[in-house]
Design a binder for these strands. Structure first.
Lengths: 204, 204
DNA sequence: TACTGTGAACCTATTCACAGCA
DNA sequence: TGCTGTGAATAGGTTCACAGTA
C-alpha cells in the first residue's frame, strides 16, 4: 500500500498524460508501441518509465491490461481518490477564472472546487457557481476551514505575486499559475505554469 | 541580424519567462543572482543560458542592462515583432474558449487573434468579439486566408483529436492544447500542453 | 514471434570552478 | 570585491541492446 517511489518530474508528467490516454483507449490491452504511436514517446522510454514505477505489471510479452495499468500508475503517483485531499480553489474571477467555475472544467471526482476568490467584491456577488465565492480578504480563513490544498491562480499579472504571497501564507501546497508572471514561492510549494502567451511563444 | 542559434527547449522556456520578469523589473540593471532570487534558477544556469544565446552582452562584472537583455533574448528566440507571423485563432468557444476572446488575454501586440471557430453554429452567432467567429466547417478556408499560423485548442476532450486533425490539414504550425488529451500530430508541428487538470495532478 | 524488463551506454542539462574584468 | 564568461565535471534523462517470457 505504501511504495510510491520518488519519480522524476518528466516521468510523472508522462504518466499523467498516459492516464488520460488510457481513459479513452478502446481495447482491453495496450503495448508500449501502441502508446508510442499515440504520443511520440519511444517504446523503450515508456517501458523504462514503468520500470521506474517499480511495480511488476504482469505485462510480459503481451502488452498491458489497460485497467491494471491505470490503477498502478494512479497509485504510484499518489493520485488515488482516497490518498490526497483534492480540494481546490480558484483565485481571480475575471473572464478566465470565471470560465473555470464551470462544472465541466473539473468533471472528474479527482478535484473538487471548494471556493472562488476575487478582490473585486462586485464579481463575488454577481457570479453564479455551485460553490461559494468570497472576497480575497477571507482567503486565509476559508482555505483553512475548507481544507483547500491547491489553487488555480487566474488573476491579472500585476496581482499575481501579491495573491501568491497570500496563498503561501495560508499554507497552500501547490499553485497552477495561469498568469504570465514567474512566481516567487518558498521551496516546497509546487508551481505549474500554464501561461497561454508563454506557450504560444514556445510553439513558434 | 541572422544568428538565432538552435537552443534547447528548456533554455527557451526559461528565457521566455525571463522576458516577463524583465518587463516588470524596476531597475535599469539586473544580475544573474537577482534573477536567481526571483525564479529559483541557479545563477550559473542563467549565465550558461546567456552563453548559449551566443551574443556578447557587455554585462561583465556589473550585471546586465534590462532593456538590452530583453532585446537580445527576443531576437535570439525569433520573437521580434517583425520576424514571425503572429496571427492566431481560438478553436472551441465553450466557456474557456469564449473567455479567451477577451482583448485582455492577449494584450501584447505579439499575438493577434484573427478568428474563433466552433462546430456549434449557435455559439458562433451569439458570442461577441472584436474579430470574426466562424463555424468549424470554414476553418480550412479562413486559416489560409488570414494567414493564421498558431491555434489555441479549447474544445472538449472528445473533439480534441478530430479538431487537431483538421487544424493540421490547414497547415497550422503550432497548437496550444488546453484539453486533457495527448494530441497526435505529425512531426514538425509543435504542441504545448496546458491542461489544468494535468497540472493539478502534477503539483500534488 | 512479439512483446516486456533491465542495466549499460549515450546524450542532454545543470552545476561547479575559476579566469578575467570593472 | 562582486560580478560575468566559459569549459570541464557531474547529474539526470533517454535510448539501445538483449535476455527472458507467453
Amino acid at each position: 500500500m505504501q511504495s510510491q517511489v520518488c519519480l522524476p518530474e518528466v516521468t510523472k508528467k508522462r504518466m499523467i498524460q498516459l492516464l488520460q490516454l488510457l481513459k479513452a483507449w478502446p481495447d482491453e490491452k495496450i503495448t508500449s508501441s501502441d502508446i508510442s504511436q499515440q504520443t511520440g514517446w519511444k517504446p523503450s522510454l515508456i517501458r523504462h518509465d514503468f520500470w521506474l514505477l517499480g511495480t511488476d505489471f504482469n505485462g510480459v510479452s503481451n502488452g498491458y491490461y489497460k485497467d491494471q495499468l491505470s490503477e498502478i500508475i494512479s497509485r504510484q503517483l499518489g493520485l488515488q481518490a482516497e490518498s490526497f485531499t483534492k480540494n481546490i480553489c480558484i483565485v481571480g474571477l475575471g473572464r478566465l477564472g470565471a470560465a473555470l467555475l464551470d462544472q465541466n472544467t473539473f468533471p472528474e471526482s479527482e478535484f473538487q472546487i471548494k471556493a472562488g476568490f476575487d478582490s473585486n467584491v462586485y464579481r463575488v456577488e454577481i457570479l453564479r457557481s455551485t460553490f461559494p465565492l468570497y472576497p480575497a480578504s477571507e482567503m486565509q480563513f476559508v482555505i483553512k476551514r475548507e481544507n483547500i490544498k491547491y489553487a488555480v491562480l487566474a488573476v491579472t499579472d500585476k496581482d499575481a505575486q501579491s495573491m501568491t504571497d497570500r496563498l503561501v501564507k495560508t499554507g497552500i501546497q501547490g499553485i497552477v499559475n495561469m498568469t504570465n508572471v514567474v512566481l516567487k514561492v518558498p521551496k516546497g510549494i509546487k508551481v505549474e505554469n500554464l501561461s497561454i502567451i508563454n506557450a504560444l511563444k514556445l510553439v513558434i
